[in-house]
């Protein structure tokens, strides 16, 4: 396997609640992801997936543990980390008043791309995601599916080695979701390291090379689908998930 581009060691995030107690959103997470791999983070709502993604994208600071992205520590080299990733989540919107092309160009510039290179790169991603037809339309006029494509294009325009995708199909219709999944697969073919979080089993089954099952902030299972099948003696991912999660409850 190629070198790990993302590693976490004992990564934790603890919040204080109003009553003075503690909420362990992420608890001692150890995982690693490699180039040319789609690494799935599977868990229910509130499991800790988004918190993990946000820590890796340097939006949040870990309470304990450490993590590295492309060899940069997320706490001491945050800018270098952000320069190495493309981030996409359900809450990363588009600038309504910019056109699709302008949106991608702006973020290319924000990632330090030179003008000449940026121009050709923008055309490349427009073509790749088949959004050249409406590149001149303002983002507010685009349908949900088109917006998502633009969002993904925005996330990869600077050709980052690591993509962090936090529930990228949430709110999309069937066709738009399918298109998104196709593009995610393309990203793997391009040799990217893709961290993909979701609560939809079918997406994980279809896309992910390795899967980490998170529940209550803790890692419940890690491995390829086959490895998980062997370890739990179950075939379907849904059953595997229920077993691993139930163990914790028990």
């Amino acid at each position: 396997m190629s070198e790990a581009l993302v590693t976490t060691i004992g990564l934790s995030k603890v919040y204080s609640d109003h009553a003075g107690g503690q909420i362990r959103a992420v608890d001692s997470l150890d995982l690693s992801c490699h180039a040319g791999e789609i690494f799935g983070l599977l868990g229910l709502n509130g499991a800790g997936k988004t918190t993990t993604m946000r820590m890796l994208s340097t939006a949040l600071t870990p309470t304990a543990g450490r993590a590295e992205v492309c060899g940069h520590d997320i706490q001491t080299a945050a800018r270098e980390v952000r320069a190495s990733i493309g981030f996409l989540s359900g809450t990363t919107g588009l600038y309504h008043r910019l056109t699709a092309r302008e949106m991608i160009e702006t973020f290319g510039r924000l990632h330090g791309m030179e003008a000449q290179h940026l121009k050709s790169r923008v055309e490349e991603v427009l073509d790749l995601f088949e959004i050249d037809k409406y590149a001149g339309m303002r983002c507010e006029k685009l349908s949900t599916g088109m917006k998502q494509k633009v969002n993904i294009a925005r996330a990869i325009v600077h050709d980052p080695p690591v993509l962090i995708l936090d529930e990228p199909t949430s709110g999309l219709d069937v066709l738009a979701a399918a298109t998104t999944l196709e593009f995610v697969q393309k990203l793997r073919e391009l040799g990217k390291c893709v961290l993909y979080s979701t609560h939809i089993m079918s997406e994980v089954e279809r896309l992910c090379d390795r899967i980490a099952i998170i529940h209550g902030g803790r890692l419940r299972g890690l491995g390829t689908l086959d490895e998980l099948r062997v370890s739990t003696n179950r075939h379907y991912l849904e059953d595997i998930f229920r077993d691993l999660v139930r163990e914790d409850a028990a």
Binding site: A59, R82, T92
Partner: peptide, 14 residues
């Protein structure tokens, strides 16, 4: 409101 704050802060800008 437009949910672009997180998008912006994911860029490598101080």
């Amino acid at each position: 409101e437009r949910s672009t704050m997180e998008t912006l802060f994911s860029a490598p800008l101080p």
